[in-house]
């Protein structure tokens, strides 16, 4: 399943324009600790987090993650979006809490 399909099925708001929406999402990692994502996230994972600051872009790029979903109505900082555009990383936001978004994603990616 690619980023575009996930955004549409989970009613996510795509906040960036330059990311590759056709990029395949191979898994998911959920954490608000950046070192945890660096240690345990896997290439192709979509990352669900509450963090909104620009360092999430650096971590996502370093790990070659497929995209970032910021949950719970949180809004990414302007600098975060600028950095994401420069790196062609897709950032999306979701109104639903992490549990619900993760539950739907699990269904789509694993079932």
């Amino acid at each position: 399943m690619n980023i575009h399909e996930i955004a549409s099925k989970l009613s996510l708001d795509v906040k960036t324009t330059k990311g590759d929406l056709e990029r395949e999402v191979t898994g998911c990692y959920i954490s608000d600790l950046l070192s945890d994502v660096m240690a345990n996230g896997k290439e192709g994972d979509i990352w669900i987090t509450h963090q909104t600051h620009p360092n999430i872009v650096a971590v996502a790029i370093l790990k070659n993650l497929s995209g970032v979903i910021i949950t719970n109505k949180r809004v990414p900082e302007e600098d975060t979006l600028k950095r994401a555009e420069a790196e062609h990383l897709t950032i999306m936001t979701g109104q639903a809490p992490t549990f619900e978004i993760a539950g739907m994603l699990y269904h789509f990616l694993r079932c």
Binding site: S31, D32, L34
Partner: peptide
């Protein structure tokens, strides 16, 4: 609060 400072930095470097 930014998600850093979890005490994983040095262990991650070593690993």
């Amino acid at each position: 609060e930014m998600g850093w400072g979890a005490g994983m930095g040095l262990p991650n470097m070593k690993k």
